Simulated scan of single mutants.
Amino acid sequence: MRVDGVGDAGLHRIHSMMADLGLSDEIRFEDTSDGFCVECDPPLVPERENLAWRAPMSLQSPLPQVRINVLKRIPLEAGLGGGSSDAAAALRGIAMIMEARGEPVTPQAMLEAASRTGADVPACLCEGLKVVEGYGERVRPLDCRLPPWSIVLLRCGAGVLTARAYALLDDDRSRVADSSNPADVARDDEAIEGMRHALDSCDFSQFRSLLHNDFTDVVERAYPHIARARRRLEGLGAQATLLCGSGSCVAGFYERTAGASAAVQALAGASGCWSALTAFAPAGAAV
């Protein structure tokens, strides 16, 4: 993930590659006589702050009397896009219900609602591997067979607010001279094609060499427990590690499931930590 300069309305431009994982929250829809509403288990945020509520409301059209029940499995402030994927699932579900009732929602209306809800929501409407650019509104799917590698997710200690991570990055960059280069875009495109090829051909060595996240250094300096989590995964045999989004979760990649399973077992019950074993989810997987 590369973060460019600040543009309109103080938003940051990004150039990133994103992939779906097998780990997910559970979203259920049921008819109700109470109007449109959202309930979350556990109730981590007020209803009107829940992206699964805000996304359908951003359609700016009358909504069906439906209750959305969200069973959370993905932790907050982890950089895993749990809230954004819930928002995308809520949009898809409401659109399906409205279409069945003769009130179809256009793809453009879906995209606009997603963009109004959050920068990562448009990407979550697109299944499989994708490139995300601009302020998150430009999403390009990539044709790629994702490898069967195992992924261990580890979050220990406090989460990281996205705004805080961007502020740390801006402050760090303000201390050095502008190093922007017109060739950055070309290098990004080359790296993305290299990563797509590595995943498609199961080339773990190339995959590991291309992993990068602009947030890693600044976030690990400000939150030492995240650096410790990364080192812990490395100590448990992870062959590559990556900060997820702006943090606080770290992903450890394993070519073989046995090593990943042993790592998760070793992490079970660790005080103040959450961990999960997952893998890449191919396009077309159940959402």
Score class of each variant (00 low, 15 high):
19 A>G: 11
253 F>C: 03
103 E>W: 08
219 V>R: 08
130 K>S: 07
156 C>S: 14
252 G>Q: 02
13 R>S: 14
205 S>P: 00
239 Q>T: 10
53 W>A: 09
161 L>I: 08
8 D>S: 13
168 L>K: 05
266 A>F: 12
92 R>Q: 06
169 L>Y: 11
140 R>V: 13
149 W>N: 03
5 G>P: 04
1 M>R: 10
142 L>F: 06
60 Q>I: 03
174 S>N: 12
116 R>K: 14
279 A>H: 13
37 C>D: 08
127 E>D: 15
254 Y>H: 02
114 A>V: 01
81 G>N: 05
173 R>T: 08
108 Q>G: 01
23 L>Q: 06
287 V>E: 01
243 L>T: 07
172 D>H: 15
5 G>R: 14
16 S>E: 11
125 L>E: 01
13 R>Q: 13
145 R>Q: 13
90 A>F: 00
196 R>G: 02
36 F>L: 03
261 S>E: 15
113 A>K: 00
173 R>C: 12
61 S>K: 13
94 I>A: 13
220 E>K: 13
41 D>M: 09
200 D>F: 10
184 D>A: 12
37 C>E: 13
238 A>W: 07
114 A>L: 02
215 F>W: 08
80 L>V: 07
55 A>P: 04
241 T>L: 03
229 A>Y: 07
50 N>F: 13
119 A>P: 11
116 R>N: 01
254 Y>W: 02
262 A>D: 14
219 V>Y: 06
133 E>I: 01
260 A>Y: 04
64 P>T: 10
181 N>H: 15
121 V>G: 04
106 T>D: 00
272 G>Y: 12
179 S>D: 13
160 V>R: 06
188 D>S: 14
70 V>M: 13
255 E>Q: 15
186 A>M: 08
278 T>N: 12
83 G>Y: 01
122 P>D: 04
265 Q>L: 15
32 T>F: 05
136 G>H: 05
175 R>T: 13
48 R>S: 08
